[in-house]
């Protein structure tokens, strides 16, 4: 049920932004974060989103992640107009189709790696054994077999981010949204994380949209979108 329709409907985009604007505040205090963004992302893509701070890339990621809705314009996810969904419907959409990786890892502290990875499965009402098995498998896929019972405090930054990736992919999401996943890591760990993301994109067909500051990381992606002043400035496929 989670497999993207990437063969039969290859030409219909997985994600489609049409003239999306986002305005924060009202009146003279109003601030236009997005000023009419058009963007299409197809299943299986790996997109690096770049741009200076304030360029609107974070706002765009929030909208893509169904955490926020456009002020005007249309965002379609698998043909569904997200702007029309309620808060709860968007939560369900995130639960079943999206995975998130954050710069700060956002793991539950004092909670074992295994339980962290189980978290999305709990919200999916998975049974106990299925939950354990799936979570262990996900940890194995990020190379953390043997670290299941360590808490984030006992893991290195790179390991923590791998736990976070395991948590994001444990539900086999259609899209993985990564917000500067290597922002807090040194270059060696960064490369490991990027290799991991690349493998999930390549081997499991998970579409990845990743915000990054570093051109070194963007090269791992298949496509780079540059934001500037609330608009897509450049968009090129490698």
């Amino acid at each position: 049920m989670n497999t993207p329709a990437n063969n039969s409907a290859a030409r219909s985009p997985l994600i489609e932004l049409c003239g999306v604007t986002k305005v924060y505040g009202v009146g003279i205090a109003a601030m236009e974060a997005l000023r009419g963004v058009d963007l299409r992302i197809y299943a299986g893509d790996f997109v690096a989103v770049m741009g200076p701070s304030g360029s609107g890339k974070s706002t765009c990621m929030n909208i893509l992640g169904c955490l926020d809705t456009p002020t005007t314009g249309v965002y379609r996810f698998q043909g569904i107009e997200v702007g029309r969904l309620t808060r709860n419907q968007r939560a369900l959409l995130r639960r079943h189709y999206l995975g998130f990786v954050f710069q700060g890892f956002n793991l539950l502290n004092r909670t074992s790696a295994l339980e962290n990875v189980e978290l999305p499965l709990i919200y999916r009402h998975a049974h106990t054994t299925e939950r354990h098995v799936t979570a262990r498998l996900a940890l194995e896929q990020v190379g953390l077999t043997g670290w299941e019972h360590h808490t984030p405090g006992e893991l290195s930054g790179g390991q923590q981010q791998r736990v976070a990736i395991a948590r994001a992919i444990v539900t086999r999401p259609v899209v993985l949204l990564a917000d500067e996943p290597t922002g807090n890591l040194d270059s060696k760990r960064s490369a490991e994380i990027m290799d991991l993301l690349t493998s999930f994109n390549r081997d499991h067909g998970i579409t990845i949209i990743m915000v990054t500051h570093e051109p070194d990381m963007a090269v791992y992606a298949k496509r780079t979108v540059h934001f500037l002043d609330g608009l897509v400035a450049t968009d090129h496929t490698h």
Binding site: G65, R95, N106
Partner: peptide, 16 residues
């Protein structure tokens, strides 16, 4: 707060 944000991003509904 951050943890709650994470839960919401993961797909927890308000009532959950």
């Amino acid at each position: 707060t951050r943890e709650i944000g994470t839960r919401l991003a993961i797909g927890a509904m308000e009532r959950e």
